[in-house]
Design a protein around this nucleic acid. Structure first.
Ligand code: FES
Ligand code: FES
Lengths: 158, 158
DNA sequence: TTCATATAGTACCGTAACAGTACTCTTTCG
DNA sequence: CGAAAGAGTACTGTTACGGTACTATATGAA
């Protein structure tokens, strides 16, 4: 239902948790499990996936753990969502991949969906892990009535 | 995956198809099935659901059919998506309903998700069936770099 | 060098939502 | 009446989600 999966939600929660600990540069999965209340296996799976998407770096062995791969303001919502649930496309047709939908000729909504998809991506790309770790509403307050695109060139709307 | 379900896609396709036929004021499900290429039972189910959400009006009996309940520019994407797949909430916590998530205290992302959800809703609410029946990109071209909120009060971003 | 601790990798399973289909009932026009 | 159309119900197969268990590998410390 235009919903982000639970796992994704959890994953972003973990990222935010890591972002808030500026001090410790290595945090074990067990620790994150403890203070998020999520079962360890779930946390492990998520951290692994986030690592393979290069949002986290991991150190194995005793006293190992995870840390952010980049500065929190260099990681966007799109990065995190796509890490967990793959490239996000609003519909079958809206992705960049060649549309395999046979209805394309009769339906003809593909261009529209792609455009909308792009808008949503832009909105989500404007929100960073840094924002999520704090208050998005505060950080982007001034944008509330015009959305998140930064370099907007103001034009009149017909 | 932040994806709208196939049925929803179909449903919007049907709505668009209806919007394009300004002339005929009653179209049978069988007819829509024929020129969309979708199986009749699927089309019927969708039309029924769209009717119960008051986006369409139906006339029963012989020579009955469906018609738009409102002008195409008075029907938004949110209306259509919610008709098929229920109220749309990006996460468990982002809806208006009381959050039942027990992680609320430790995760504390609820406010952020709600805000983001609201942004997406605003974007989608700015797109009407009329736009979808034609070209969204053309209609909203001037808004491409600042998104779809109309009554924006321009402010500087810090 | 051995052991405890940590991540990496794999594999599996139960549930629920999605997507499709079939069948029956009711209404209305000719 | 009877054909045509929508309304309602019920069932099914498939897939993705969410959770769990188990094993392998790497590393620091005793
Ligand atoms: S569903 Fe593929 S083009 Fe519309
Ligand atoms: S998951 Fe419910 S508040 Fe974060």
């Amino acid at each position: 239902m235009l919903k982000v999966s639970k796992l994704t939600d959890y994953g972003i929660g973990l990222m935010a948790s890591l972002a808030r600990r500026e001090g410790d540069n290595l945090v074990a999965a067990r620790e994150l499990s403890a203070d998020s209340g999520l079962p360890l296996p779930t946390v492990s799976k998520l951290l692994k996936v986030l690592t393979s998407s290069e949002l986290l770096v991991s150190t194995r062995g005793a006293s190992g753990g995870y840390a952010l791969a980049r500065r929190p303001d260099q990681i966007t919502l799109v990065d995190m969502i796509e890490a967990v649930e793959g490239p996000l496309a609003l519909t079958e047709c809206s992705g960049n991949a060649a549309c395999v939908c046979e209805l394309e000729t009769t339906c003809g909504l593909k261009a529209n969906w792609s455009w909308i998809n792009q808008q949503l991506l832009n909105t989500l790309r404007g929100i960073t892990l840094q924002n999520m770790a704090g208050s998005v509403a505060r950080d982007l307050r001034t944008l509330t009535n015009e959305n998140t695109i930064q370099n907007s060139t103001k034009k009149a709307v017909s």
